[in-house]
Design a binder for these strands. Sequence first.
DNA 1: CTGAAAGCGCTAACAA
DNA 2: TTGTTAGCGCTTTCAG
Lengths: 347, 347
Amino acid sequence: MSNKPIGIKDVAGAAGVSVTTVSHVLNDVSYARISSKTRDKVKHAAEALGYDPNRLAQALRTQRSGMLGFISEEIATTPHAGRIILGAEETARRRGYHLMIINTSSKATDESRKADIAALLKGQVDGVLYATMYHRRLALPDNLNGVPAILVDSEDTNQSISSVIPDEAGGATAAVMTLIDAGHQRIGMINNTDDVPATHSRLQAFKDTISDAGLTFHTDLVEAEHSEVPGGYEAALRLLTRKDRPTAIFCYNDRMAMGTYRAASELGLNIPEDLSVVGFDNQELIAENLYPALTTVSLPHYEMGAWAAENLIDAIEGKTDLALMALHPTILDCPLVRRDSVAAPAR
Amino acid sequence: MSNKPIGIKDVAGAAGVSVTTVSHVLNDVSYARISSKTRDKVKHAAEALGYDPNRLAQALRTQRSGMLGFISEEIATTPHAGRIILGAEETARRRGYHLMIINTSSKATDESRKADIAALLKGQVDGVLYATMYHRRLALPDNLNGVPAILVDSEDTNQSISSVIPDEAGGATAAVMTLIDAGHQRIGMINNTDDVPATHSRLQAFKDTISDAGLTFHTDLVEAEHSEVPGGYEAALRLLTRKDRPTAIFCYNDRMAMGTYRAASELGLNIPEDLSVVGFDNQELIAENLYPALTTVSLPHYEMGAWAAENLIDAIEGKTDLALMALHPTILDCPLVRRDSVAAPAR
DNA sequence: CTGAAAGCGCTAACAA
DNA sequence: TTGTTAGCGCTTTCAG
């Protein structure tokens, strides 16, 4: 609508008051005692002129830029990063903040991580969000010290930075329970070979859930491979060619489930009639498009991003003390997404 | 390393000169004539103190924030958006700029688009990149007027904003050629039903390539459906159950190709022995993981992001006139990615 | 109740 | 060849 920027003094002029007054009323300064008549005059003038304070000047003066630094690993490879960004961006915007994005790699050196953070700090961000590609434990560079920061989808090895992570165990439990509830007794698991928290906690939850249900856990019903489609295929082949093959398989992730689908198809096994399968991750491109659509566990990416932004902002505004939450990561739910790959076992 | 911010006057003090001099040497101001001795003194002092100019103050003074606004549609749903962001972010960073991200939807109202742009402008960005989810023609809100801006992956209906788009026709031609080169004569196409540029240009290229190769184009060998997996499945079923079925199919995108795989599998047709297929998009999650891996055409997302950032920055810095390029979109190559879904037809 | 004025950290005329 | 100084647009202390 306008092209020439309206400054605070234009508003002051129009309202016939000083800039101080304008600033006070527009910022709702608590100790300012201003007649409601003046308040109205100022507000109307501001409104009429379409006044919009210059964030830069504001930032320079208040030492607060309204900008959140967002470091994301592998922004490019999965939609997951996108969901985290989305969650963070939407809540940040709702609170009047913006996101400044920097990409990094999960294999980044400490050196380059430090540089990324430095770049962000130089950009005068008020705090930083560090989002990883997958749940793990890592040590963040020391130049983050003193800066409000939250780790998304990973834990800080020295517990000095608070973080949000998914409830791996809960998700795995739900996945296995849906299989048990469907009547399965011989349930296999295809696990990842990487030494990351998810590998261990999902396996543990698998064991526990089996036991808690009064079934017996068979070590040889869990196979591990590299967590991609071919790995899932290989592992599934081994599991499904046993004489007493499982009637259901819990897969470490949707990609491995995709491999399992192929193995089943080659062996002439129909899903879900002959074999039930449940995945993990809810990578929609896969889970929704496999045939039959895959029942899986969804990771709360959006929610983690939102939680992180919300709490980071609270910390920046002094409403919260991040140090307090740093001791224990916040754990968010991993809901089961039911689709069509689970059925009762054939008798 | 340091905690108390070093200002320009600290450097001036340490070097025993005035702030002007410091500013001049550090910014390589052309008209400033300063002895090289002084230059060195200043540089060393700055170095020693670890001086880092405050971008905010700089920005306030120069009316240039070093920030590029990046509006992306559906950041969350595909890795494509991520590749564009990555390309833009990396080149922006190389040129000393940062990205401020805002998410929007491809179904956004003009109203909300305007609000997004306003939010960015209010954040004092120097220019804006508007990235769409898929190639189409759209009208951007008028509050973008006067602001350096580039449309990524779409064209402006009123040709006032320059843009980068993929070479749809070239990609489709390469796809069809690889089929023809393999010896196929009866080639089918599964097209999209949406009225977007890609639908038309890929079909046109399909026809042209067939004709140019001296083959005859059969209208009934092209089927169209909604461009998702189920649509691909349906269309493929129709094509493959004809008495004179095609020996190869060019699919509108990788998802439709995925549906084609399923149809082929149900009909007992092996890929690539009995049927060759090529997709479009190179959605790695699908293309790499299908069995056999899908030969497809890749969209230059990273490159478009990089090109856009580079040219936007040039425009901001006055090295380029965007108005000049606005007349014709810049077209970037769509290279064929050869995998295992194409072979010679069975005799 | 309201206003004058001093900066935030930097750049760039203009002087010297 | 270098230094003085006036702002960029806003917030906030301190006086009226």
